[in-house]
Design a binder for these strands. Structure first.
Lengths: 266, 266
DNA sequence: CCCTGTGAAACAATTCACAGCA
DNA sequence: TGCTGTGAATTGTTTCACAGGG
């Protein structure tokens, strides 16, 4: 329902699509590079190329922010850097804590991309007493016991979890209880949080799996793989109905696989 | 390569929507956990909760793979693990190389999530001669000079780039020339690759910026909605005086926000 | 003519809601 | 009865194509 009309005059509205928000950092990065080279203006075409998107999309994205370009000319680099930074909330300083200082946590602490934006690593926290006091990326690692205190003292609202999966939910709960409202989760587990808390996840192996999917597709007809792995017994008496294709699916390639049955090692 | 035409909309593969493919690893992870606990079957509702999605989406996703469930009962865990693994191409072994063994590269090499899926780290490669011979995650780091040889000898088709941004494109070009057709890029830069090569990117700071956007939103629930713009400079005719440093970091930005946001459309 | 900004069309993803089978 | 599988409706995103200002 909600039929109704749009109660928003388009421009100036605060409804920036999620897909657009996700690309703003990309534009910002490209613009920052141009700024460093003292390039004064860019066209949507050039900037789009530098950011790896197409120009129509970029212009549409910018149209949600307002009209910051000049027709016939392009966009003023400095001005746009400022506007996007502001939109993303990067004109203010965000103290963050990183919990779990293993390989990944250390990599994150050393990652220049944080500091160069509005992020400041307020503290590195680890549950291992042996880590306490160690210096990583110029910052002293503190023990988990101090977590609540650190969050409060520094006014931290963003937390990064880089612990093993098993510890993630617990750490998350403590962060949230202490006042953190945005969490970036690197642990391969689903976190549950109360309403109002934002979680974004990055799972390194997921990206690789997606690549494998496409890679497999390219390899195409090499299949055969089914040889060494047998499929597990079918479920409780069920026939394996492979993807039906009753519709007008024009897919040219039928699966090279085939539904080889078999057995799967547990 | 400026834009050019349309590259093949790789999306019309074999009918599985990209968004679905991106979730399969999630389901797989949840299913693997269930499998380890010897749970024989799950309903779409339960599995969805474990994977962090809603059940309608999950059922729709599975419907693209085929009819692997049993009405009134649910899905057979082992069977589904196998089917999804096969769909993702994880029933075969994927040798990967990681280029750039800094903090991040080392973290990746040590990341259990790779090995536990079908991925095998065939080699760690770094341009720094001082790294050559060092053992990281049980693997000896090799020098970049050997890159082509390593790719060929191991039949590597997936490469992971964890170098500084400045070296990424060059490494990418060499990987591609050597035969790699899928690249996972952790360097904060846009890679250009020939048609047929797949690139996925993970930019650690981008996720944080997206969080900052939403965080700012939460905080701003009080004010906003009024206010005009006061920008650092007007778009038209701006003299770009600011710094021209190349150290990649940017201004420490202004104060705690007191400046005025919002903008007026033309 | 440059280029931006944007309605409208096309496409993709998500959610609804229920038919139908175990 | 309980749960899957799936058309249909809805919502979100991308692309097209062109109006209109510089």
């Amino acid at each position: 329902m909600a039929t109704g009309r749009n109660h928003r005059p388009a421009t100036r509205s605060r409804g920036i699509p999620e897909a657009t928000v996700a690309r703003l950092p990309l534009y910002l990065r490209a613009l920052t590079a141009l700024s460093e080279r003292s390039v004064p203006t860019v066209s949507s075409e050039e900037l789009a190329a530098a950011a790896g998107v197409n120009s129509a999309k970029l212009r549409k994205d910018f149209s949600y922010l307002g009209s910051y370009g000049t027709r016939g000319v392009g966009y003023d680099v400095e001005y746009l850097v400022y506007q996007i930074s502001r939109e993303l909330g990067l004109t203010q300083d965000w103290p963050v804590v990183i919990v779990g200082i293993g390989n990944l946590g250390a990599a994150l602490a050393n990652y220049g991309g944080f500091a160069s934006r509005g992020f400041r690593v307020a503290s590195l926290i680890d549950a291992d007493p042996a880590m306490s006091g160690k210096i990583v990326a110029g910052i002293e690692v503190q023990h988990t016991d101090l977590l609540e205190r650190i969050i409060a003292d520094n006014g931290v609202s963003i937390g990064v979890i880089a612990t093993p999966a098993g510890a993630a939910q617990q750490v998350c709960d403590r962060l949230v209880a202490a006042g953190v409202t945005s969490i970036l989760n690197f642990a391969p587990t689903v976190l549950s949080v109360p309403d109002g808390v934002d979680v974004r996840k990055v799972d390194l192996s997921i990206e690789l799996q997606i690549l494998a999917f496409h890679e497999q597709r390219k390899a195409g007809e090499l299949d055969t793989e089914a040889a060494d792995t047998a499929a597990p017994a079918a479920p409780p008496a069920v026939s394996v109905t492979r993807r039906a294709a009753e519709d007008a699916d024009d897919d040219t390639e039928a699966g090279p696989d085939g539904d080889v049955p078999a057995v799967m090692p547990a």
